[in-house]
Amino acid sequence: MKKTLILAALIGLAATPAQAEHWDVIGSKLKDGCSMGTYMAIVKDFNEWGKAHGYKATILTPIQDRDLETFWWIGRTKDAATFGAAWDAWRDAMADPNSTEAKLQARFDKCSVDNSRSGYDAW
């Protein structure tokens, strides 16, 4: 029985890393003249792009915090490899100013400024 429990625990630990989502966490503030509604329209368009890359963003806006101006982008992929592939596609497309990615980035740049970015494994 003891050996069975140890084996089950080891199998569980071995399987766990494959189940970790990757979270892309970005702290941002709106620029003057840009509303949260405008920003969320950009996020909606980004999420359409993200479907093909396994990436989805959710925006957290503070209700109670010492900094009520910073909102949080929580981008999620099924794992770090999927995030890496999405990032490569986004970054590589920036070379073409007419690409969907470059146009989305220009809209983000006009509306917001990022003040932090972190990546996490989410269990």
Rank of each mutant, 00 (worst) to 15 (best):
residue 102 A to V: 09
residue 10 L to P: 00
residue 42 I to W: 01
residue 72 W to C: 05
residue 16 T to V: 11
residue 56 K to Y: 06
residue 44 K to A: 15
residue 85 A to W: 02
residue 119 G to K: 04
residue 114 D to E: 15
residue 47 N to R: 09
residue 9 A to H: 06
residue 82 T to N: 06
residue 87 W to C: 00
residue 45 D to P: 01
residue 29 K to G: 02
residue 65 D to H: 14
residue 93 A to V: 01
residue 111 C to L: 05
residue 13 L to M: 14
residue 32 D to G: 10
residue 58 T to E: 11
residue 98 N to W: 01
residue 2 K to Q: 07
residue 61 T to Q: 15
residue 20 A to V: 07
residue 30 L to F: 11
residue 84 G to H: 09
residue 25 V to Y: 01
residue 85 A to P: 00
residue 67 D to I: 09
residue 19 Q to D: 02
residue 83 F to T: 02
residue 89 A to I: 08
residue 119 G to P: 01
residue 32 D to K: 12
residue 4 T to E: 14
residue 114 D to P: 04
residue 6 I to H: 09
residue 3 K to Y: 08
residue 107 R to H: 07
residue 23 W to C: 01
residue 29 K to E: 08
residue 53 H to A: 00
residue 14 A to W: 02
residue 12 G to P: 08
residue 76 R to Y: 00
residue 120 Y to S: 04
residue 46 F to K: 03
residue 73 W to V: 08
residue 76 R to M: 04
residue 54 G to L: 03
residue 42 I to M: 01
residue 87 W to R: 13
residue 78 K to M: 01
residue 80 A to W: 04
residue 31 K to M: 06
residue 3 K to F: 06
residue 3 K to I: 03
residue 106 A to S: 11
residue 109 D to S: 13
residue 5 L to R: 12
residue 67 D to G: 10
residue 122 A to S: 14
residue 86 A to I: 06
residue 33 G to T: 07
residue 108 F to C: 05
residue 15 A to R: 06
residue 28 S to N: 06
residue 119 G to H: 12
residue 117 R to V: 10
residue 15 A to T: 14
residue 112 S to H: 02
residue 50 G to P: 05
residue 117 R to S: 08
residue 118 S to Y: 08
residue 59 I to T: 11
residue 33 G to D: 03
residue 79 D to I: 06
residue 21 E to T: 07
residue 8 A to R: 02
residue 99 S to P: 03
residue 2 K to Y: 06
